[in-house]
Design a protein around this nucleic acid. Structure first.
Lengths: 232, 232
DNA sequence: TTTAGATTTATATTCGAAAAAATGGGAAAA
DNA sequence: TTTTCCCATTTTTTCGAATATAAATCTAAA
């Protein structure tokens, strides 16, 4: 597969390692979401190649996908760069996400079984392990929090039977995720109140109270977006 | 750029030719939409390379984007294949598209100016040039109809100020487009009635009658989807 | 000094070769 | 007959070199 003469035969620490293209895609997206790169920063192949240790073709493949997802923009002959951000766009994304999310949540509440409930409880517990930590510790485990927060939110709508609705919702969630950390100042979504908000949303969802759950979700998301706008 | 020794220096008939990657993406998507490939058909690099006359890397880049767009699915180590189709998915896409389309249409009606109106009229005229033709001629200019139909529908919502709403709407329109021709039997959307439907939708839109326009749009789209399901 | 053209440098794009999987088929063992 | 293993073939995945384009720098004339 890769003509790289290194790698002493199957002794990798991380165990899987069986797909560079997808791996790079994930890491690149994660880095963009975490604001490793500035919003309109150029993504040069030479730099990326050094950072992710892959060939040009593989990078190009990953970047192309990110263009489709809206994280990266490309201009013919001038390469790729991180998509810019704006308050207007954040408002669009927030509205669109909430619309999709509420529909997905209603579907999940109508269709979810016991395994769905169990997963929610489990992932909420994991999220809480970080959220109930003192400030410094939470900050230290920032990227872990991002993942757990993502997983918890996704679990709420995981029982949604509509594939495309789920897909579009997740797209918009990723976009929101980026805005959540677009500012270098105190990361949003780590406030004290989120602690209780997540619990309330979970309770209403599992109690199959769609009206309450969607209302709480709306307030939860809008609150975060408002805070981001204040710092933008 | 390309180490291809052919191409006698800037004497191309089609004039642009300056972007293989994007060109291949467009052609591939167009071929998938037009059912050149069967729904679950494998897309082998050897075949594609012969058909589109580009290198493997370029193909990979295009296919990756199509994965993000939902036209192609990929399995690690087993390559790419055309996304499958199902009645369930068509229903999902129809619902999702209509929801987005109606919102975009309302936004466009609220924000559109005279140029917007003019473009709609122009593109509707162009579409009509084909739609008012006798059956055989319409069939002969099938791919042209696809493009004009697409352009007309897009012009209706072109004045929508919400970028992401527009973007997602277009994604779903493309998906619907595929289903419209997924069956080899009489292509859908070419019926006589579409002729009048398009005119009515245009009239209501330009008259800024959002309620009527969205209602007509809903009936227009649902009618097509119903016909597709009957043949699926 | 400023501008226009030419040259150099930096960067993006494309390709095919090479390595790694996966697939298929046939022989040997059960 | 059925299963398993091995090997040949096909196909995918990855990489870097080769080419083309854009940006930057320099030079010379106005």
């Amino acid at each position: 597969m890769r003509p790289k003469p290194e790698a002493p035969a199957s002794s990798q620490g991380d165990a899987h390692e069986q797909w560079q293209a997808k791996d790079v895609l994930t890491r690149l997206r994660s880095d963009i979401v975490s604001s490793v790169y500035e919003p309109a920063e150029r993504l040069k192949f030479a730099d990326l190649r050094a950072r992710y240790d892959v060939g040009i073709g593989t990078l190009r493949e990953a970047l192309s996908q990110l263009v489709s997802e809206g994280f990266v923009v490309v201009e013919v002959g001038k390469g790729f760069k991180v998509a810019p951000v704006s308050i207007k766009e954040l408002n669009e994304i927030t509205d669109l996400f909430l619309d999709l999310e509420k529909r997905a949540l209603r579907s999940a509440i109508a269709n979810g079984d016991e395994n769905w409930e169990t997963t929610i409880v489990a992932l909420h517990y994991k999220l809480n392990l970080i959220e109930s930590l003192p400030w410094e510790d939470r900050m230290a485990r920032h990227s872990e929090w991002v993942k757990r927060h993502r997983d918890f939110h996704e679990s709420l709508v995981a029982a949604c039977t509509d594939t495309w609705l789920f897909r579009l919702r997740s797209m918009m969630f990723d976009q929101l995720d980026r805005y959540r950390f677009v500012t270098k100042k105190a990361p949003q979504g780590l406030g004290q109140h989120k602690f209780t908000e997540h619990r309330k949303i979970m309770d209403a969802t599992i109690a199959r109270d769609a009206a309450t759950a969607t209302a709480l979700m709306e307030e939860h998301i809008r609150d975060t977006s408002r805070r981001v706008i204040d710092l933008l």
